[in-house]
């Protein structure tokens, strides 16, 4: 394990240069550039808030930061999974030329998504401060371990999605559909309390996607540290995913090239 991590570290200049290149290429020739990664959740928020304000008379100063925080987390989780699906297929030319540790390719997609998450969180914090004020700014420190946990989860999910999609190319499309369904079940656009009030509390309690959003919403919106149950659930999920990814890398690496 230590030797493997050492080999990942030894080629850090390679995967870091790929991350930089991905970020550059994504917005190459675009007038708005990296601003698009902010424009997308902002546009979605404006539309959804307009609808909620008109139909449900929701308080926009409460709802805008709430929704943006949820979308930031959601877009990250969807992004690392779907881009993770392609991580090995996209890296086929490198895999066929050099025997580098396969773990670096999901790391590439995860780091790219993390940059966008950090930008989105910056906007959420700024908007929250402007619209309703930050109650306990020290609670924002909780975002540091949350980001680390999300990166670990993102990398693990990327490894798993990448392996499965390399063998079954339908995986990417199946996951897209699955995420569409999960979007409405994961309290992204409504408070999780609504689920409890309507007898669907179990859905919030055992859906880790809800817990991951709470890790971001609690410190930013409410100035509180995330609850113990949310921390326990997310750590368990990230730990499980990391273990599964390590096992897949250990036993699947030698076979992956035959499916490319």
């Amino acid at each position: 394990m230590t030797a493997y991590l050492g080999s990942v570290w030894s080629c850090r200049y390679f995967w870091l240069s790929l991350v930089r290149m991905d970020l550059r290429n994504r917005y190459r020739g675009s007038v708005l550039g990296i601003g698009w990664s902010l424009a997308h959740p902002l546009a979605a928020t404006v539309v959804i808030c307009a609808v909620y304000y008109k139909l449900l008379k929701a308080d926009v100063t409460e709802f805008v930061p709430f929704l943006l925080a949820g979308l930031a987390c959601w877009n990250y989780l969807v992004g690392v999974t779907l881009s993770g699906c392609q991580c090995f297929v996209q890296a086929e030319p490198y895999i066929r030329q050099h025997a580098l540790p396969l773990a670096i390719y999901p790391l590439r997609t995860t780091l790219g998504a993390t940059v966008h998450l950090a930008l989105a969180l910056g906007v959420v914090i700024a908007l929250t401060a402007a619209l309703r004020g930050l109650h306990h700014p020290t609670a924002l420190l909780a975002l540091v371990p949350t980001m680390a946990l999300l990166m670990l989860l993102g990398w693990s999910v990327g490894v798993l999605a990448g392996f499965v999609n390399t063998v079954f190319r339908d995986t990417h499309h199946l996951l897209e559909v699955t995420f569409q369904i999960l979007f409405y079940l994961s309290a992204v656009i409504y408070p999780k309390e609504l689920l409890y009030q309507n007898g669907l509390g179990w859905l919030a309690a055992c859906n880790p996607l809800v817990a991951f959003q709470s890790l971001i919403r609690d410190p930013v919106l409410y100035g509180s540290w995330p609850s113990g149950s949310d921390i326990a659930l997310t750590m368990a999920v990230a730990g499980l995913a990391t273990t599964a990814a390590a096992v897949v890398l250990r036993y699947g690496s030698r076979h992956l090239i035959h499916y490319l």
């Binding site: 390679f14 790929l18 290429n25 190459r28 066929r96 030329q97």
Partner: peptide, 25 residues
């Protein structure tokens, strides 16, 4: 071998030199 593989087509030749160099350690 397979020398023509693994270029990042949107990047310049100079950028490709750098990251292919990193790829080689």
């Amino acid at each position: 071998f397979e020398l023509s593989l693994g270029f990042e087509m949107e990047a310049s030749g100079r950028q490709n030199i750098l990251y292919r160099g990193y790829l080689q350690g």
